[in-house]
Nucleic acid binder design. Structure first.
Lengths: 151, 151
DNA sequence: ACAGATAGTTGTACGATTTAAATGATTGGA
DNA sequence: TCCAATCATTTAAATCGTACAACTATCTGT
Protein backbone atom coordinates (compact mmCIF):
# COMPACT_ATOMS: atom_id res chain seq x y z
CA UNK A 1 0.00 0.00 0.00
CA UNK A 2 1.64 3.19 -1.21
CA UNK A 3 0.90 6.65 0.12
CA UNK A 4 -0.86 7.65 -3.07
CA UNK A 5 -2.98 4.54 -2.85
CA UNK A 6 -4.05 5.45 0.63
CA UNK A 7 -4.95 8.91 -0.58
CA UNK A 8 -6.90 7.39 -3.45
CA UNK A 9 -8.77 5.28 -0.90
CA UNK A 10 -9.54 8.41 1.12
CA UNK A 11 -10.91 10.17 -1.93
CA UNK A 12 -12.92 7.18 -3.09
CA UNK A 13 -14.42 6.74 0.37
CA UNK A 14 -15.28 10.42 0.53
CA UNK A 15 -17.00 10.17 -2.83
CA UNK A 16 -18.97 7.09 -1.87
CA UNK A 17 -20.11 8.65 1.38
CA UNK A 18 -21.19 11.81 -0.35
CA UNK A 19 -23.06 9.82 -2.97
CA UNK A 20 -24.94 7.59 -0.54
CA UNK A 21 -25.43 10.04 2.32
CA UNK A 22 -26.24 12.84 -0.09
CA UNK A 23 -29.42 11.08 -1.11
CA UNK A 24 -31.04 11.90 2.20
CA UNK A 25 -34.16 13.14 0.51
CA UNK A 26 -34.92 9.46 0.10
CA UNK A 27 -35.22 9.12 3.83
CA UNK A 28 -37.77 11.88 4.05
CA UNK A 29 -39.54 10.54 1.01
CA UNK A 30 -39.97 7.05 2.43
CA UNK A 31 -40.93 8.39 5.85
CA UNK A 32 -43.67 10.46 4.28
CA UNK A 33 -44.78 7.64 1.97
CA UNK A 34 -45.23 5.13 4.80
CA UNK A 35 -46.27 7.60 7.48
CA UNK A 36 -43.91 6.27 10.12
CA UNK A 37 -40.43 6.99 11.44
CA UNK A 38 -37.37 5.73 9.58
CA UNK A 39 -36.52 3.54 12.52
CA UNK A 40 -39.84 1.72 12.29
CA UNK A 41 -39.40 1.36 8.56
CA UNK A 42 -36.03 -0.20 9.23
CA UNK A 43 -37.66 -2.63 11.65
CA UNK A 44 -40.42 -3.43 9.16
CA UNK A 45 -37.93 -4.03 6.37
CA UNK A 46 -35.98 -6.45 8.56
CA UNK A 47 -39.12 -8.33 9.55
CA UNK A 48 -40.18 -8.51 5.91
CA UNK A 49 -36.91 -10.27 5.10
CA UNK A 50 -37.97 -13.18 7.30
CA UNK A 51 -39.52 -14.09 10.66
CA UNK A 52 -37.41 -13.06 13.64
CA UNK A 53 -37.66 -13.10 17.40
CA UNK A 54 -38.02 -9.82 19.28
CA UNK A 55 -34.66 -10.30 20.91
CA UNK A 56 -32.87 -10.84 17.61
CA UNK A 57 -34.70 -7.87 16.13
CA UNK A 58 -33.52 -5.67 18.99
CA UNK A 59 -29.97 -6.81 18.25
CA UNK A 60 -30.23 -5.99 14.57
CA UNK A 61 -31.68 -2.57 15.30
CA UNK A 62 -29.02 -2.05 17.98
CA UNK A 63 -31.66 -1.00 20.47
CA UNK A 64 -33.01 -2.60 23.62
CA UNK A 65 -35.87 -5.06 24.01
CA UNK A 66 -38.35 -2.70 25.66
CA UNK A 67 -38.29 -0.29 22.76
CA UNK A 68 -38.43 -3.14 20.26
CA UNK A 69 -41.62 -4.30 21.96
CA UNK A 70 -43.05 -0.82 21.52
CA UNK A 71 -42.07 -0.60 17.86
CA UNK A 72 -43.51 -4.03 17.09
CA UNK A 73 -46.67 -3.03 18.96
CA UNK A 74 -46.97 -0.04 16.68
CA UNK A 75 -46.35 -2.04 13.52
CA UNK A 76 -48.87 -4.64 14.67
CA UNK A 77 -51.44 -1.95 15.38
CA UNK A 78 -50.99 -0.83 11.79
CA UNK A 79 -51.60 -4.39 10.61
CA UNK A 80 -48.13 -4.73 9.13
CA UNK A 81 -46.70 -7.46 11.36
CA UNK A 82 -47.92 -10.30 13.57
CA UNK A 83 -46.61 -12.00 16.69
CA UNK A 84 -46.70 -15.78 16.68
CA UNK A 85 -45.64 -18.27 19.31
CA UNK A 86 -42.22 -19.84 19.02
CA UNK A 87 -42.72 -23.60 19.26
CA UNK A 88 -39.07 -24.07 20.17
CA UNK A 89 -39.17 -21.65 23.11
CA UNK A 90 -42.41 -20.57 24.68
CA UNK A 91 -40.79 -17.54 26.24
CA UNK A 92 -40.09 -15.97 22.90
CA UNK A 93 -42.37 -14.79 20.14
CA UNK A 94 -41.67 -14.66 16.45
CA UNK A 95 -42.57 -11.58 14.49
CA UNK A 96 -43.76 -12.14 10.93
CA UNK A 97 -44.81 -9.73 8.24
CA UNK A 98 -48.40 -9.58 6.96
CA UNK A 99 -49.35 -9.09 3.33
CA UNK A 100 -49.93 -5.40 3.97
CA UNK A 101 -46.59 -5.21 5.72
CA UNK A 102 -44.83 -6.90 2.85
CA UNK A 103 -46.35 -4.40 0.45
CA UNK A 104 -45.28 -1.48 2.64
CA UNK A 105 -41.76 -2.87 2.98
CA UNK A 106 -41.59 -3.32 -0.78
CA UNK A 107 -42.62 0.28 -1.26
CA UNK A 108 -39.81 1.33 1.06
CA UNK A 109 -37.30 -0.83 -0.80
CA UNK A 110 -38.45 0.61 -4.12
CA UNK A 111 -37.83 4.13 -2.89
CA UNK A 112 -34.57 3.50 -1.05
CA UNK A 113 -33.21 1.07 -3.61
CA UNK A 114 -33.75 3.23 -6.67
CA UNK A 115 -30.29 4.07 -8.03
CA UNK A 116 -29.54 7.78 -8.44
CA UNK A 117 -29.68 9.12 -12.02
CA UNK A 118 -25.92 9.53 -12.17
CA UNK A 119 -25.50 5.80 -11.62
CA UNK A 120 -27.93 4.95 -14.39
CA UNK A 121 -26.02 7.29 -16.66
CA UNK A 122 -22.76 5.35 -16.33
CA UNK A 123 -21.24 3.65 -19.33
CA UNK A 124 -21.73 -0.09 -19.51
CA UNK A 125 -18.14 -1.03 -18.64
CA UNK A 126 -18.02 1.44 -15.77
CA UNK A 127 -21.23 0.13 -14.31
CA UNK A 128 -19.96 -3.41 -14.60
CA UNK A 129 -16.72 -2.45 -12.88
CA UNK A 130 -18.59 -0.64 -10.12
CA UNK A 131 -20.85 -3.61 -9.54
CA UNK A 132 -17.91 -5.98 -9.34
CA UNK A 133 -15.81 -3.79 -7.05
CA UNK A 134 -18.69 -2.83 -4.77
CA UNK A 135 -19.64 -6.49 -4.42
CA UNK A 136 -16.11 -7.28 -3.34
CA UNK A 137 -16.18 -4.43 -0.83
CA UNK A 138 -19.42 -5.62 0.72
CA UNK A 139 -18.12 -9.16 0.82
CA UNK A 140 -14.95 -7.96 2.50
CA UNK A 141 -16.70 -5.72 5.02
CA UNK A 142 -18.93 -8.51 6.23
CA UNK A 143 -15.94 -10.69 7.04
CA UNK A 144 -13.77 -8.04 8.69
CA UNK A 145 -15.75 -5.54 10.71
CA UNK A 146 -12.78 -3.68 12.15
CA UNK A 147 -9.48 -5.25 11.15
CA UNK A 148 -7.49 -5.57 7.95
CA UNK A 149 -7.55 -8.74 5.88
CA UNK A 150 -5.08 -11.52 6.42
CA UNK A 151 -4.27 -10.45 10.00
CA UNK B 1 -30.06 1.28 -21.15
CA UNK B 2 -30.74 -2.45 -21.30
CA UNK B 3 -32.67 -4.39 -18.68
CA UNK B 4 -29.55 -6.13 -17.44
CA UNK B 5 -27.84 -2.77 -17.10
CA UNK B 6 -30.65 -1.48 -14.96
CA UNK B 7 -30.38 -4.58 -12.82
CA UNK B 8 -26.65 -4.07 -12.55
CA UNK B 9 -27.30 -0.51 -11.40
CA UNK B 10 -29.74 -1.81 -8.78
CA UNK B 11 -27.18 -4.28 -7.48
CA UNK B 12 -24.37 -1.73 -7.48
CA UNK B 13 -26.53 0.80 -5.62
CA UNK B 14 -27.52 -1.83 -3.10
CA UNK B 15 -23.88 -2.69 -2.53
CA UNK B 16 -22.86 0.92 -2.11
CA UNK B 17 -25.65 1.59 0.35
CA UNK B 18 -24.75 -1.46 2.37
CA UNK B 19 -21.11 -0.47 2.39
CA UNK B 20 -21.64 3.13 3.49
CA UNK B 21 -24.67 2.67 5.73
CA UNK B 22 -23.26 -0.51 7.21
CA UNK B 23 -20.44 1.41 8.86
CA UNK B 24 -22.77 2.77 11.51
CA UNK B 25 -20.24 2.07 14.23
CA UNK B 26 -18.50 5.16 12.92
CA UNK B 27 -21.48 7.24 13.87
CA UNK B 28 -21.44 5.95 17.41
CA UNK B 29 -17.69 6.32 17.55
CA UNK B 30 -17.71 9.97 16.55
CA UNK B 31 -20.69 10.73 18.80
CA UNK B 32 -18.82 9.27 21.74
CA UNK B 33 -15.54 10.94 20.80
CA UNK B 34 -17.05 14.43 20.62
CA UNK B 35 -19.67 13.95 23.31
CA UNK B 36 -22.52 15.40 21.28
CA UNK B 37 -25.29 14.23 18.97
CA UNK B 38 -24.54 13.37 15.36
CA UNK B 39 -26.75 16.22 14.27
CA UNK B 40 -24.66 18.75 16.18
CA UNK B 41 -21.51 17.22 14.75
CA UNK B 42 -22.98 17.66 11.30
CA UNK B 43 -23.69 21.30 12.10
CA UNK B 44 -20.18 21.80 13.46
CA UNK B 45 -18.59 20.20 10.40
CA UNK B 46 -20.56 22.50 8.15
CA UNK B 47 -19.59 25.58 10.15
CA UNK B 48 -15.96 24.46 10.08
CA UNK B 49 -16.06 24.47 6.28
CA UNK B 50 -16.68 28.20 6.32
CA UNK B 51 -18.68 31.00 7.99
CA UNK B 52 -22.41 30.75 7.40
CA UNK B 53 -25.54 32.55 8.48
CA UNK B 54 -27.98 30.81 10.79
CA UNK B 55 -30.62 30.79 8.11
CA UNK B 56 -28.36 29.16 5.55
CA UNK B 57 -27.20 26.66 8.15
CA UNK B 58 -30.80 25.71 8.88
CA UNK B 59 -31.29 25.13 5.16
CA UNK B 60 -28.24 22.89 4.87
CA UNK B 61 -29.27 20.87 7.89
CA UNK B 62 -32.84 20.74 6.54
CA UNK B 63 -34.22 21.85 9.86
CA UNK B 64 -35.90 25.04 11.05
CA UNK B 65 -34.33 28.22 12.39
CA UNK B 66 -35.46 27.88 16.02
CA UNK B 67 -33.71 24.55 16.40
CA UNK B 68 -30.66 25.83 14.56
CA UNK B 69 -30.45 28.63 17.10
CA UNK B 70 -30.55 26.07 19.88
CA UNK B 71 -27.88 23.89 18.28
CA UNK B 72 -25.58 26.85 17.68
CA UNK B 73 -26.21 27.95 21.28
CA UNK B 74 -25.00 24.56 22.43
CA UNK B 75 -21.94 24.61 20.19
CA UNK B 76 -21.13 28.13 21.35
CA UNK B 77 -21.50 27.10 24.98
CA UNK B 78 -18.90 24.41 24.27
CA UNK B 79 -16.59 27.05 22.81
CA UNK B 80 -16.62 25.47 19.37
CA UNK B 81 -18.32 28.25 17.40
CA UNK B 82 -18.89 31.99 17.61
CA UNK B 83 -21.60 34.35 16.45
CA UNK B 84 -20.49 37.49 14.71
CA UNK B 85 -22.51 40.33 13.27
CA UNK B 86 -23.21 40.33 9.56
CA UNK B 87 -22.09 43.72 8.22
CA UNK B 88 -24.25 43.24 5.13
CA UNK B 89 -27.44 42.61 7.11
CA UNK B 90 -27.68 43.52 10.75
CA UNK B 91 -30.63 41.19 11.24
CA UNK B 92 -28.55 38.13 10.55
CA UNK B 93 -25.54 36.72 12.36
CA UNK B 94 -22.67 34.76 10.93
CA UNK B 95 -21.49 31.64 12.69
CA UNK B 96 -17.76 30.94 12.57
CA UNK B 97 -15.74 28.08 13.97
CA UNK B 98 -13.21 28.61 16.77
CA UNK B 99 -9.83 26.90 16.94
CA UNK B 100 -11.24 24.33 19.35
CA UNK B 101 -14.17 23.83 17.03
CA UNK B 102 -11.91 23.34 14.06
CA UNK B 103 -9.96 20.70 15.97
CA UNK B 104 -13.16 18.91 16.98
CA UNK B 105 -14.46 19.00 13.41
CA UNK B 106 -11.17 17.61 12.18
CA UNK B 107 -11.41 14.80 14.69
CA UNK B 108 -14.88 14.00 13.34
CA UNK B 109 -13.63 14.06 9.75
CA UNK B 110 -10.75 11.76 10.66
CA UNK B 111 -13.13 9.21 12.13
CA UNK B 112 -15.84 9.44 9.50
CA UNK B 113 -13.45 9.75 6.60
CA UNK B 114 -11.32 6.71 7.38
CA UNK B 115 -11.87 4.19 4.58
CA UNK B 116 -13.07 0.74 5.68
CA UNK B 117 -10.44 -2.04 5.59
CA UNK B 118 -12.03 -3.69 2.59
CA UNK B 119 -11.43 -0.55 0.55
CA UNK B 120 -7.79 -0.40 1.56
CA UNK B 121 -7.45 -4.04 0.56
CA UNK B 122 -8.45 -3.38 -3.05
CA UNK B 123 -5.96 -3.97 -5.85
CA UNK B 124 -4.38 -0.85 -7.27
CA UNK B 125 -6.30 -0.85 -10.55
CA UNK B 126 -9.61 -1.52 -8.82
CA UNK B 127 -9.07 1.31 -6.40
CA UNK B 128 -8.18 3.64 -9.24
CA UNK B 129 -11.29 2.60 -11.14
CA UNK B 130 -13.44 3.09 -8.07
CA UNK B 131 -12.02 6.53 -7.44
CA UNK B 132 -12.62 7.57 -11.03
CA UNK B 133 -16.16 6.19 -11.21
CA UNK B 134 -17.22 7.49 -7.80
CA UNK B 135 -15.90 10.93 -8.67
CA UNK B 136 -18.02 10.92 -11.80
CA UNK B 137 -21.06 9.84 -9.78
CA UNK B 138 -20.63 12.64 -7.27
CA UNK B 139 -20.08 15.14 -10.04
CA UNK B 140 -23.24 13.94 -11.75
CA UNK B 141 -25.38 13.89 -8.61
CA UNK B 142 -24.53 17.48 -7.76
CA UNK B 143 -25.83 18.69 -11.11
CA UNK B 144 -29.00 16.58 -11.22
CA UNK B 145 -30.66 16.14 -7.87
CA UNK B 146 -33.74 14.33 -9.12
CA UNK B 147 -33.78 14.12 -12.91
CA UNK B 148 -31.80 12.24 -15.54
CA UNK B 149 -28.99 13.93 -17.42
CA UNK B 150 -29.53 15.69 -20.71
CA UNK B 151 -33.28 16.08 -20.19
C1' DA C 1 -37.33 -29.17 42.79
C1' DC C 2 -34.20 -25.45 42.75
C1' DA C 3 -31.26 -21.36 41.22
C1' DG C 4 -29.88 -18.63 37.72
C1' DA C 5 -30.38 -17.00 33.08
C1' DT C 6 -33.29 -15.51 29.17
C1' DA C 7 -37.58 -13.54 26.45
C1' DG C 8 -40.98 -10.42 26.42
C1' DT C 9 -43.50 -6.84 28.64
C1' DT C 10 -44.52 -2.65 31.45
C1' DG C 11 -43.27 1.64 33.27
C1' DT C 12 -40.40 5.64 34.03
C1' DA C 13 -37.08 9.18 33.08
C1' DC C 14 -34.31 11.68 30.01
C1' DG C 15 -32.12 13.87 25.81
C1' DA C 16 -32.76 14.99 20.99
C1' DT C 17 -35.59 16.63 17.46
C1' DT C 18 -39.86 18.56 15.27
C1' DT C 19 -43.51 21.72 15.10
C1' DA C 20 -45.92 25.87 16.08
C1' DA C 21 -46.79 30.55 17.93
C1' DA C 22 -45.03 34.74 19.17
C1' DT C 23 -41.53 38.69 19.73
C1' DG C 24 -37.95 42.31 18.68
C1' DA C 25 -34.75 44.08 15.34
C1' DT C 26 -33.98 45.09 10.73
C1' DT C 27 -34.56 45.32 5.80
C1' DG C 28 -36.89 46.49 1.49
C1' DG C 29 -40.24 48.53 -1.33
C1' DA C 30 -44.47 51.67 -2.03
C1' DT D 1 -42.80 57.23 6.58
C1' DC D 2 -45.40 53.02 6.53
C1' DC D 3 -46.22 48.13 5.59
C1' DA D 4 -44.85 43.63 4.74
C1' DA D 5 -41.23 40.39 4.88
C1' DT D 6 -37.02 38.39 6.88
C1' DC D 7 -33.59 37.03 10.65
C1' DA D 8 -32.74 35.42 15.00
C1' DT D 9 -34.67 34.19 19.18
C1' DT D 10 -37.76 32.49 22.89
C1' DT D 11 -41.21 29.48 24.55
C1' DA D 12 -44.11 25.47 24.74
C1' DA D 13 -45.86 21.05 23.35
C1' DA D 14 -45.34 16.69 21.02
C1' DT D 15 -42.75 12.81 19.09
C1' DC D 16 -38.89 9.74 18.79
C1' DG D 17 -35.34 7.10 20.59
C1' DT D 18 -32.20 5.56 24.56
C1' DA D 19 -31.43 3.78 29.02
C1' DC D 20 -32.69 1.59 33.17
C1' DA D 21 -35.50 -1.03 36.72
C1' DA D 22 -38.76 -4.42 37.58
C1' DC D 23 -42.03 -8.12 36.61
C1' DT D 24 -43.86 -12.70 34.67
C1' DA D 25 -43.15 -16.81 32.20
C1' DT D 26 -40.06 -20.02 30.68
C1' DC D 27 -35.74 -22.33 29.89
C1' DT D 28 -31.29 -24.44 31.44
C1' DG D 29 -28.33 -26.93 34.39
C1' DT D 30 -27.86 -29.24 38.81
Amino acid sequence: MTTTQHEAALRAWSNLRELVLGSNERRKEVVEALGMSFFRIKALRRIAKGPITLCALADELTTDRPYTTLVVDDLAKRGLVQRTANPADRRSKIVTVTEAGRAAAQRAEDILGAPPPALLALAEEELAALERISARLVEGSAAMPARAAGG
